[in-house]
Design a protein around this nucleic acid. Sequence first.
DNA 1: ACCATACATGAATTCTACATCATATGATTT
DNA 2: AAATCATATGATGTAGAATTCATGTATGGT
Lengths: 99, 99
Amino acid sequence: MICHSYNLFFDNFSNKTRIKIIESLILGPKSVTDICNMTKEEQSKVSHNLRNLKECHFLDVKKNGKQRIYSLNKGTVVPILKLVEKHVHKYCGEVCNKK
Amino acid sequence: MICHSYNLFFDNFSNKTRIKIIESLILGPKSVTDICNMTKEEQSKVSHNLRNLKECHFLDVKKNGKQRIYSLNKGTVVPILKLVEKHVHKYCGEVCNKK
DNA sequence: ACCATACATGAATTCTACATCATATGATTT
DNA sequence: AAATCATATGATGTAGAATTCATGTATGGT
């Protein structure tokens, strides 16, 4: 039986900005400013999106002075992305150039 | 390295109608009319959503007279849903009653 | 105490995906 | 070949999400 509110969780992956944020965090924890630099996205936009990801526990935060260090919940996020990656390679060839 | 168009795939899970369709197909292949009945959704809505799911190869179709029989790509879909299910139980308690 | 930095938050606007409605197509029956 | 059933498709309006802009808060430095 599937829970109908799972869509709330997948929302986090269905947005380019958030995928970029996740990508930037795969290598390791980062401050908001670092994330902005890596993703070339504005700070406000990043903060809003970090909030969504955090609400679903895909991200964790620690304070460090004025900085907030965000880290990825790799236990969940990485396996999910891996499954889609596998699926894409198997069925979808070079869909990656779309949009 | 994450492909930035993965959001296209996750879109399919970030929608209640499509989750309901997926749910209805877990037990086995079904015609569009059957899916409409199980999900209590209108035919046009269902067809539009089936299209999205099919485009990403999460679903497969066969013709049978006037009917189209849709079946789930369980190899991909089920493991993905399982991972989120696990995540929800671990981190989010009874979020399932939201919305 | 003041200013700068790092980040968050709220409101306003823009944008997009979805549902809806109407219509089209294709197969079957009579 | 007309009528009917099963499904798909196109166009449009709209709700909700995402971005943007302005401002707020917290921390640290001087």
